[in-house]
Amino acid sequence: MAIKKYISNLAVIQNTAINSQTHLLKLSSNSALPTIIPGQFAELRIDGTSDVFLRRPISVNFVDYTKNELWLLVQKVGKGTQKLCELRENDNLNLLFPLGNGFTLPGDFTQKVLLIGGGVGVAPLLFLAAELAKLNCCITILIGGRSADNLLLVNDFADYGKVYFTTEDGSAGERGYVTQHSILANEKFDKIYCCGPTPMMKAVGQYACQKNIDCQISLENTMACGIGACLCCVTNTVDGHKCVCSDGPVFNINDIKWNND
């Protein structure tokens, strides 16, 4: 079941700001990309600064196997991600990938699946939507953000299913949080995939448990190694501490024990 991991240099072929805080990096590989499962991530090496010592884990946003392109969505949250957003065309980026366990795809493709993303958490869901679409799943996408500017990749998601939004300020879609969206009351889903801020994943998890819907979430704890060696990125689960990098980042909601629970 273990998926072989690689260390390789990929070339930056495009770096586009998609809002003030978020960049889309398109990387190209000289050799054929290995099979990557939606939800898996890469550890990116950032050189040339003493402030950024460790790699940065970034989830795979999209893979184009025909062009050997790997896409990453990077939000500027600190010095490391700031450096990544400053990369220029033809720069090389050293990656460890693909890391971690991705989302488990439904066994029954007639199922209605709901993808819920918040902020930059939509990143792995785009690749997931693309893979689910190949299986002819019925896909609904629900994206939440503070305001319209935080709703990312809306047009890209529209290729794969119906897209709904919520914003906290009401500037797009329904006002409020994703768990308050009318689609949750009006439609019935068989499976939920969620990635976003922790409070969102907690609320979505609660909803899924109440409705008895199978729900997978993707966590993003701070990491050092990314390969299960350092035990720094643990999350509390029903089986004790598990590494987000190697046991996750995708977990079934029933296995997670949130801190302070």
């Binding site: 950024v52 010592f53 720094c232 509390n236 004790g240």
Partner: peptide, 23 residues
């Protein structure tokens, strides 16, 4: 040993702090 609660790691200039606690 379960080790210490998360967060267990902090990046520092040219280094890092860990508090894994022998998990």
């Amino acid at each position: 040993r379960q080790g210490n609660p998360y967060p267990r790691m902090a990046e520092t200039p040219s280094g890092m702090l860990n508090a894994v606690g022998l998990q």
